[in-house]
Amino acid sequence: MQRPDWAPETIDVERPSVARMYDYYLGGSHNFAVDRAAAQAMVAAVPEAPLMAQANRAFLRRAVQFLTNAGIRQFLDIGSGIPTVGNVHEIAQRHAPDSRVVYVDVDPVAVAHSREILAGTEGATVVQEDLRHPERILAHPDVRANLDFSQPVAVLVVAVLHFVGDHDRPAEVLRTLRAALAPGSHLVLSQASDDGRSDAERAEAQKVYQRTDSPLWVRSRAELTAFFDGFELVDPGVVWVPQWRPETPDSAEDAERAVFLGGVGRLGG
């Protein structure tokens, strides 16, 4: 008997999860020995890994603040991972309590954890879906119930695109998402880049992530910029994440050590 295609995956905690590794980089304890071992191997290869995660998280915070100031009240956070310090709905709702956030992650443990954390929280929910199937995300009843796509929505694809290989056609994924958005919507992207890295560092980092549930696809600034096709890039464009609207000038120093490039685009019209 053929297994039906809607049968869910099993939960394998023997494999490192990129969501729990990220939590470890941010100083959290929502992780297991296998995740910590992988994260430590990553740190051995790229000592800045925790710094990268922190810088990316700070970028997310600044981007969401920027978006709430721009009047955005709806957020679709794809690849939200383990709910950890400074989540989107906390940042957004502090400024605008009517903000609505839908978190999306493919990792069932991350989703279960999010669901527990979000129980009883107004305006925030989580669905289990895969960025590689944007049409399924857009059609998901919980997404439809919480977000009004006739109004501007901010789609956050932060620190997740590097887990989508070229064979999964990330540009097409983003096009599909864009097609569902109303004018005034925004796209926030950040992803690991190997611009300015040595070959040895690249190889080492690849090796670590090959062992995880999601191998790593680093990309150049030009590639990331191309992902904003159809959007108008908000100043300062695609930059190392600490350089994106820093709070203090010195916090943008040594920005390329952050490894993550990021940017925010606005859908005109």
């Binding site: 905690v13 729990r20 304890s29 279960a112 954890h113």
Partner: peptide, 17 residues
């Protein structure tokens, strides 16, 4: 707390699956 939370999430996810 966090260790407990992530374990609980794992059990929940497994039960859900």
């Amino acid at each position: 707390d966090e260790q407990e939370a992530i374990r609980r999430a794992t059990l929940t996810a497994r039960a859900d699956a």
